[in-house]
Design a protein around this nucleic acid. Structure first.
Ligand SMILES: [Mn+2]
Ligand SMILES: [Mn+2]
Ligand SMILES: [Zn+2]
Ligand SMILES: [Zn+2]
Lengths: 139, 139
DNA sequence: TATCTAGTTTATAATAATTCTAAACTAGAA
DNA sequence: TTCTAGTTTAGAATTATTATAAACTAGATA
């Protein structure tokens, strides 16, 4: 049984997105969202961390399904910055990233740390869905 | 035999990067660089276009090898913007992109069309290798 | 020009991330 | 308690990419 102050909140959140609050989803919610700071991860790392301890394992397929469902529901943001591998971000506010080519880790850049004083108009008939700055860094 | 005003230039270019000017590489050079405008492509699309006509086929492995070699040599830039698939860009100058989520196509944004009046300092000991803005657009 | 060899191309196999499939399970409405 | 649509799961399938190793070739040298 999962115990968390936020359990009820997660149950509601899931229900409001037409997602049944299953053991697996709640465990993943707790793991992802019971934290102060932004969490950036790949499915591989999430799978390892979720299934680290002796606890009942959540299958890899469910990890994939859940991450996709949470992304569609808007609980997670997908970050495409690395070859052949998707990253996900618990910070769903509009913001930017450093991507360290060595450690392959993302770090948040708050929106107010970058100022765009000029932005181009999108092509005719197209709307801006999202604008992201990625700053690749290295030693 | 490939005939092109730029052939000699490509031969030199390749030699200067310690790449032998083979038939295949020259054909790919001609296809990629004998054009006015930036060309954005995936290995899949390049393979289709290069091998469209009845001409002698270049193997997919060679397309992959060549794109990688050209990227390392600095003739191409890799753009990571789409899930599970790399894009490449014949425009190697520092610039930005629109990415159309519908058509999955990239469009250049010249550096001077975006003005960054505030950019964060990279973490200690790290240097900025590259800064790119991606604007995702939709109908 | 003929010979030689490191670099290259190629078909194919292997890998890695992800998606699909279908059977077993379960949340929760009735 | 029963029922069913939604969910989980193991494993197969798919897709993009990378590795392997044999055949080929650019071009240096004899
Ligand atoms: Mn993939
Ligand atoms: Mn891949
Ligand atoms: Zn973030
Ligand atoms: Zn471009």
């Amino acid at each position: 049984m999962i115990i968390s102050d936020n359990l009820k909140m997660y149950v509601q959140k899931l229900r409001s997105s037409n997602l049944r609050p299953t053991k697996q989803r709640l465990k993943i919610c707790k793991f992802l969202f019971d934290r102060e700071k932004t969490f950036h991860f790949t499915v591989e790392t999430l799978n390892k961390k979720i299934n680290k301890n002796g606890a009942t394992k959540i299958s890899l397929a469910t990890i994939y399904n859940t991450v996709e469902a949470f992304t569609i529901a808007g609980y997670l943001k997908e970050i495409l910055t690395s070859k052949n591998k998707s990253y996900y971000d618990t910070n769903i506010k509009s913001h930017h990233h450093f991507y360290d080519e060595g450690s392959k880790e993302l770090t948040d850049i708050h929106s107010n740390q970058i100022k765009l004083s000029k932005v181009p108009v999108p092509p005719k008939g197209k709307k801006i869905k999202n604008l992201e700055v990625i700053i690749r860094i290295q030693k």
